[in-house]
Design a protein around this nucleic acid. Structure first.
Lengths: 190, 190
DNA sequence: AAAATAGTGTGACATACATCAAATTATTTT
DNA sequence: AAAATAATTTGATGTATGTCACACTATTTT
């Protein structure tokens, strides 16, 4: 069950059995059903989540009660409200599964402890955040310089799996358009 | 001249004189005039830059020859094409000063070496990227859920200094609108 | 100081996307 | 299987922002 986590670490660093056992002892396993929130707006955030199964989403609700998806997280990826977690301010996001899901939970405190105790764990997380940073930067560029149709086409190319698992209104929200607009985009290809 | 760099590190970690001297020996100082590029599209990217003076911008040029500003970097901040740097692909960005500027240059190779040799340097950069990640996440939320006027108002609140140093057409580009639209936004306040 | 260049502002018009309302289809729950 | 709920599609209309053209103002350069 924690094999996926080990493989995940070992894409970047190598670990002995005992090192991995020590690391993984700081994670707890959690099964989630639809509408079971890991994080809700206003809460203090203490944990970070590594996805084993299913798909999670993080999103905010704006003043007009509209939902805006910030992130999807598929297996082998991490999710949390990092703004709230790192700056210790109340969360502005909700995080819950798209359908059902399974995650491994680690507290920020334990993560920092591990980073402190094991240089290579700190190395791992630095590399990981670097990749996350690059991904977000690409997303910003996409939002700034391409129209909704291009963003849509890029997304299906990059994550075809999403289109099976995730309702189109959530994908529309992630792309920054309404579900009506998304519907029209792929009904009337270029 | 490297005082700013030391202060920058010591916001997160503590360093002895000899440690700092060792670290800073990997940086070289560079003065830049307007239109002097640190990075151009298509190039291989080897370095990262720490801003001492002035203001730099990173931007892409799209297929219609329009410029899109990804980032401004004021003193005490870092800039590079991280996508190109970390993934070792040709750059899709240009980076040059808004007016004139001074930077400290470090190669990715040296940075990785330092991270490897000194755990606390790796810790520093992990924390730093985490903050960068959070900043980008906030920017994505802004692009997805607020209109140009709100993004504009948030930006002047957060970085009033930019509005002295940076032509408004660059600010418009950073916000994802045309200069004409930005002009109309602040001519006709809400 | 004149000339050249870079930056900004304004009007007329075009367009991508949002909004609202309603019909249709798919999926869950009982 | 029926009923309830969730997701998608479609049409009519509104609005924010883009585009183009040109005038105006600053700032460099000669």
């Amino acid at each position: 069950m924690k094999d996926l986590l080990r493989a995940h670490f070992e894409k970047i660093i190598t670990l002995t059995d005992s090192e991995f056992e020590y690391i993984s002892s700081h994670f707890t396993h959690k099964k989630l059903i639809k509408h079971q929130f890991l994080i809700q707006e206003g809460e203090t955030v203490k944990n970070e989540f590594f996805v084993l199964k299913g798909c999670l989403k993080s999103y905010m609700i704006d003043s007009d009660n509209k939902m805006h998806v910030l992130q999807f997280a598929l297996p082998d990826w991490w999710i949390s409200d990092y703004h709230a977690l790192y700056k210790q301010v109340p969360s502005s996001l909700y995080i819950d599964p798209v359908e059902s899901a399974e995650v491994l939970v680690i507290s920020l405190e334990d993560k920092e402890k591990l980073c402190n105790e094991l240089h290579k764990v700190e190395h791992f997380f630095r590399k990981k955040t670097n990749l996350g940073y690059v991904g977000l930067q690409q997303r910003v560029l996409g939002l700034i310089n391409t129209d909704a149709r291009d963003r849509y086409e890029q997304l299906i190319k990059q994550y075809p799996a999403l289109f099976q698992m995730v309702p189109k209104q959530l994908i529309a929200s992630y792309l920054g358009v309404t579900r009506e607009t998304l519907s029209r985009l792929y009904k009337n290809p270029k």
